[in-house]
Amino acid sequence: MSLTELDDGLVRRMAMGAVFSDFGGKIHSVGFHRTDDLLVTSSEDDSLRLFDIANAKQLKITYHKKHGTDRVCFTHHPSSLICSSRYNLESTGESLRYLSMYDNRILRYFKGHKDRVVSLCMSPINDSFMSGSLDRSVRLWDLRVNACQGILHLRGRPAVAYDQQGLVFAIAMEGGAVKLFDSRCYDKGPFDTFLVGGDTAEVNDIKFSNDGKSMLLTTTNNNIYVLDAYRGEKKCGFSLEPSQGTPIEATFTPDGKYVLSGSGDGTLHAWNIENPSEVARWENNIGVVSCLKWAPRRAMFVAASTVLTFWIPNDGESPAPADPPTDQQQ
């Protein structure tokens, strides 16, 4: 059985189906493979773990004590990853690593960033990828060469994302500006700039919806904006409880109709963005969810704090469905 789109009922029925709790600390980031049923996580214990999301099984675990693990994402190959480092950035400069989980080997170092990488995104179409660092630069890379393909200097913490078609990438800059680049001729500079009016907080995270129509911005003060990806208009915005240093993450569903997000109070929320309204709210189960991603090709999402949880639609009407949204103001 496979779905083409979700509905309110299904979103509301999402429930925790699997819990992995042996992470020795916070989970920094999670990433899905674009096509395979695979998930990778990076956590405070410097491990990278590979999960089978169809069967809710941990497949592999590797440790990276020398470099640490921070941002991580799959390349197009199901056992290759890009991972950013947390340690020894100054001495080695090896801020990014291209790894293979197949034989637990580093395939390539990408040197250049002088500080921690906070945003990492793989092109959905080819071998290029992008990294935004606290050294206030964004770099473009190609997996096949260790030389940087392009650098962009900003004045603040960057957040980067490719659209799901690989045609465009977006870089969020200081002052709430989101610049769009043509991924084929980015050398000419951005072709468009959106300003998220009124909110000057730094953008933590950008995501594009699969249909390419919407863009999702998460700011450091836990506001979420859904923008029209063509015109940059704010479609809707949600304000969530502050979470003091733990960035929250928001995600689109694959059909681009819903947005899910964690909150500082540990709850999870789901909104319909076509006619903006809260669809579901889940009580706090695992603390503040710092990583939240919906699987690219499944009706499931993962939420992670210090534990990793897989959420799937609850078909039997057994325990604890999401609380219907209350009128209570968050």
Binding site: M16, P124, I125, P254
Partner: peptide
């Protein structure tokens, strides 16, 4: 709160969206 695991249903993406999946990747 945990429910029994079952394989979550797959989701078909609209063909028209042309969501890319590494079609031009040499690396893979």
């Amino acid at each position: 709160k945990q429910i029994d695991w079952h394989v979550p249903p797959g989701m078909e993406l609209d063909e028209l969206w042309r969501v890319a999946a590494g079609g031009n990747s040499k690396e893979a």
